[in-house]
Every structure is written in C-alpha cells, then in structure tokens.
Design a protein around this nucleic acid. Structure first.
Lengths: 339, 339
DNA sequence: GTGAAAGCGCTAACAC
DNA sequence: GTGTTAGCGCTTTCAC
C-alpha cells in the first residue's frame, strides 16, 4: 500500500541471482545482453525476475557504466507549439533506442539555460539538445570542454566559434529575407512585422528589413510582443501598426497562430485579406490550411529537426561521427490565399 | 575538445577534498547543506570546487541517497497545447525545489504508458504524474505496490479503486453536460460534437449526449477524429455533420483550436456564427478571445492543474500528506459571441 | 557461457 | 563542526 515515505523494499539483482541459482553477472546479462546467455539459463533467470517482480535500478546501472540513457533538452517553453513538435519527434527518435528525455524550460533566459545545463551535466546526461545558437561564450566553452554530444537547433551558427558541436536548423535571417521578397514580389509595399521579442524572431526581422530595404521598401514597422506571445494580444498590435503606418498593406507574422489572430482582426476591421492587407505566416502549422482565407506561410521542418537532432546524438553515442555536423533544413514559401 | 566517446576526465569529490585539505563529507556538505559548515571551511571548499571545475555527480548522489530529484510525467502528446501548458507549470513548480522532469509520451496508447511507467520506476523517480484516470487495473495495482507518490491529472477517478494515490482534475463528463445545458439553454436544438477519439473527449461526449437527452434533445451527431486531431481535418468533419443532420444549429468542439477551425469553415460556408450555427469551444485557450466572433468556451485551469500536481508531489516528498488527495478544479462557461 | 573481484562517486549514520 | 566507516545496486574487467 501507499505510504508517506514513498518507498517499499524491492528486490535487488543479487536476490534474483540467488533465487535463480546463478551469479550476479548472469542476471545483469539476462537484462542487458540476453543473447550472450544460454537459452536455459536465460529462462531460469527470467522466471526469477518475474517471480520477484524485480525492476533493475537504472541509477545504479548508470553509475557503474557511466551511461545514463538520458538526453536533456532545453527549450524556451513548450507552450509554444512550435517547439513542442520538435520535442515530440525528438522524444520518439530517442525512445526507439531506449533513451529518455529530461526536459528543461529556460523561459527565454540565458541564465536559466546555463543553470539547467549545469544540472544536466551533473546528471551525466548522454547528450544535450539546445534551442538556438546564441549561447554565451562561457557556456559554449563549458560545453566544448565537457565533451558530450550537443546539438543546437532552430537556427544555424553564423561563425565557427558559435558551433558547439553539431547543429540542425535553418537560417532565420534568410527566412526573413524570403518573406520580404515574397510580399514585395506580390506587390505589397508598406510592410509590417509582428513577432515575439526573442532572438530568432529578431533575426527574421533583421533579414526582413534588410531585404526590404534592398528592394526599395524602407517603411517596415515592427511590433515585438514579450513572450509568451499570446494570440489575444495581437489585435492591439495590429492596430498599433496601422496607426504608425496608415498605408500598411502587408504583414509578416512570426508564427501561424499570430497570423491567424491578424486574420481575425482584419475581419473585425472589415479589411479583406489579401486585397486590403496581405498576411504572411511562419511555420506552416495546421491552422494555416484551416484558416479562411488560407494562410500563405513559410514552411519549416519542425518534426524533422527533432528527428535529425536525435539521430545525430544517437550516432555519436554509438561512437561514430555523423556525416554532417551542421545540417541546414531550409524552408520554403507556401503560397495560399492570404498574400 | 570534443571527442567521439563523449567523455573527458572530471574531478571527483575526493579530488576536491584533497585540494581543500578536508574530508569527503565536508565537500558533500558544502554542496548539499552549506549552512552546516563553518564559513571559513565553506570558503576553502568552494574555492577548490571552483578551481577544479568540479561538477557533483548527481547519479552517484541519487544512488546513495535513494532520492533522484526527478519526477516523471506521461502525457499522450505534448503537441497538443492543452497538455503542454500543464507540463509547463508542472516543470516550473518542480524546478523551484530542485526537481526536474523526465517526459514520456504515450501517443494515447495504454501499452506505451505502462512501458514508460516501468522504466520510470527503474530510474527510481521520486514521483509520477499521469494523464487521465483510465489506467489498467494491473498498472494501478503496480503503482500502488510501488508506493511512490503518483498524481493523476485531467480527469477525476469515478471509483475509489481508480484512484492510484492522488488526483487533480475535473469531471469531463460533467463538463460535457454543462456544454449541452448551455447550448440548449440558448435555444439551439440540433446538436453536433467534434472531438478527438480518446478517453477524455469520449467522456465529455457521454455527458453531452446524456444531458441533451434529458433536456429533450435526441439528435446529437458526433465526429471523432483520430489523434492527433489537426485543425485542417475539421472542415470535412463539419461537412459530415451537416450532411448527417441538415438542421444542425449548434456544435460543441473539444478544444478551442478545433472550434476555431469550425469558425473558419462556417465563414467559407457563409453561415454566420452564432445566427446560423453556434460554436462552443473547450479550454479557453488564447485563441478564444482572439477569434472573430469570439468563442464561447468552457474554461478549465490547465496551468493550475500542473502547479497543484507539482505541489502535491512535493508535499509528499517532504514526508507530509497533502490536505486533499483528490482535487476537483472544476470548470465554467465563458460566454462570448459564438453561442 | 559463466563467475569473482573491484569499483562507479556519492551519502548516511555515527563517532569525535 | 568535522571525519570515519560502510554501503547504495549495479557493470566491468578478466579469469576459467
């Protein structure tokens, strides 16, 4: 029965060994490398395990073998569906080879990220997945020294020194550039931007502005929402944008949910999309196809990002080197109705 | 530098002890209970720790103390934002007392849930958070025997035997009943239901149907979408509903994102909401306020659920009993424009 | 194919 | 306040 201390006596490996009439190592092998045992022995041991309800203590195993079969990941927040999809596919990829995920949320704070990494190192995790490439120089140095496999995701390091170990992502700046080319190419000249106030969003804004300028469009108003950027804050921001730039005719939103909120606000303002105002999303989430009008957006490979990150880690954990240390997953415009 | 094996030599506690000229325990105390040490000693030890770049091995600590400071949670998927918010607040609550979260995703499969629980027990996690209350009898028995603190969330057990240890949630069936009362009370008589094909959604449908019948409304058509229920599948389902029940005038959607997709489809069908079709959401996610028309919905306390689950666990881990073993967080109708 | 010995790096209990 | 002793429950050699 449940008790307050939360612990009951459990069978240990030595108990199983005794019950089965074999040595400790044999039980260990029955659990970890059954093919190294004679079929009969294996059967006897398994019966004993079953009978005693033995559950191997993975903590003790980790200590002895110095492999934890745990991978840690740090994301700003999983409430943003954009990150949760990457985490989901990462979890699944890792699960296939018996690894589990320890999850940390940094709330977009570098200090919290560093603190999380520190305890993850203390837990001797087998690998680490980070979000973004804007880690501090000291954290980068720390991780390089630690020597464990690390994958940076959701962006690509600009310089060789920003690459800790491995990376899988895409250039956020180039994605912003593509957004500007797309909107301007379709005839919209007075542009706005709505996004979260965080690193990757800012990089996209950078690219968006610089490409717009290059194409002769200098009026780009931006509204940055402090994370978590919720949909119900978007209406007011769009109003701001229009107030600042009355001839606004195109908005780039930093995820499809924000873009959807803009769609609704346009509906309220009786401004037909895209005739009166074009809306470009980001991410190609499922809402983009469901929306009316359907959202044009920039597709990125969120699930693939998690999967590739997991594979790179697993490759390294098996002692090999992955084919590429830096994978650019790219992105593409999906033209629908809103632009 | 990074190496393929992923490990470099690291300082151990005994190295620090030697460097600081103290014993092992003193270093352990400097790390875990600094207030038990003389200020001078502490300073010396800390200097040594700093100098050697010592990172305590938490795995060894866990083994010795049999407390892992890890709590595991199983959710169907974190891609559903509805679960990720609970996980987020749980993570934060746990972090405040130095616990971390090991995350498992069951993909709505009972077998996967049981397998995850098994390895979590093997890791000797300090506590467990589960989604829903429909665990198999054998899993329930297993966990009761294991004797570790367990919190079931997102529903409330119907019977005493379905309660493993602690629970925080609400009655999904009653929430469905409330939805029916609300729609019928506002004059809608031909009802439909769109939700995911999973346990909690089904319970809401149960309640929805039975209350509707009680109030004299027998025509309730339901469309269940196999998880993950994506927004872009909703349009076709609404069409189905209308085909089956041409006079349909009210739809209850099992989360606000699905409801939003219905809103868009209504727009396409040129059926004004709520005049031609009423739409009731579930969850009160931020999209509900952003939508046009704004969504009426049933508010539940997702974040509070994670927080309370964390607190209950922490209370038990500190050796106390929580005030209540079973917390009903309830729910409420939020009347906006769509009904 | 199986076993014996020697740790993994820390904490708990008790002494001083 | 600080130190000594004795494990925590496994895996890893290496021997047979």
């Amino acid at each position: 029965m449940t008790n307050v201390t939360g612990s009951i006596s459990r069978a240990r490996m030595s108990d199983v060994a005794q019950a089965a009439g074999v040595s400790l190592v044999t039980v260990s092998r029955a659990v970890n490398s059954p093919n190294k045992l004679a079929a009969e022995t294996l059967a006897v041991v398994r019966a004993a395990i079953e009978r005693l309800g033995y559950v191997p203590n993975l903590t003790a195993g980790s200590l002895a073998s110095s492999r934890s079969r745990i991978v840690a990941a740090v994301v700003p927040t999983i409430s943003n569906p954009v990150f949760s999809e990457t985490i989901e596919s990462l979890t699944q990829t890792l699960a296939e080879s018996g690894h589990q995920l320890l999850l940390g949320q940094s709330a977009y704070s570098a200090a919290q990220e560093a603190a999380l990494v520190e305890t993850f190192l203390g837990r001797r995790v087998d690998g680490l997945v980070l979000t973004g490439c804007n880690q501090s120089a000291s954290l980068i140095a720390r991780l390089k020294r630690a020597g464990l496999p690390v994958v940076q995701t959701w962006d690509l390091p600009d310089t060789a020194s920003a690459l800790i170990d491995m990376a899988v992502g895409f250039s956020n700046r180039d994605a912003g550039r593509l957004a500007a080319r797309h909107l301007i190419g379709r005839g919209f000249r007075s542009l706005g931007f709505i996004g979260a106030e965080e690193e990757r969003s800012r990089r996209r804004l950078d690219g968006f502005k610089s490409e717009a300028a290059k194409l002769g469009v200098r009026t780009v108003a931006a509204e940055l929402i402090r994370p978590p950027a919720q949909m119900d804050q978007v209406g007011a921001r769009l109003q701001q944008l229009v107030a600042r730039q009355p001839d606004l005719d195109g908005v780039f939103c930093n995820n499809d949910l924000l873009a959807t909120a803009v769609l609704f606000e346009c509906h309220r303002m009786r401004r037909p999309v895209p005739k009166s105002l074009a809306v470009l999303g980001f991410g190609d989430q499922s809402v983009a196809r469901a929306a009316a009008p359907q959202l044009s957006t920039i597709r990125i490979r969120r699930a693939e990002m998690g999967e590739r990150a997991g594979q790179m880690l697993l490759t390294r954990l098996s002692g090999q080197m992955p084919e590429a240390q830096r994978i650019d997953l790219g992105f593409e415009i999906v033209l629908r109705e809103s632009t």
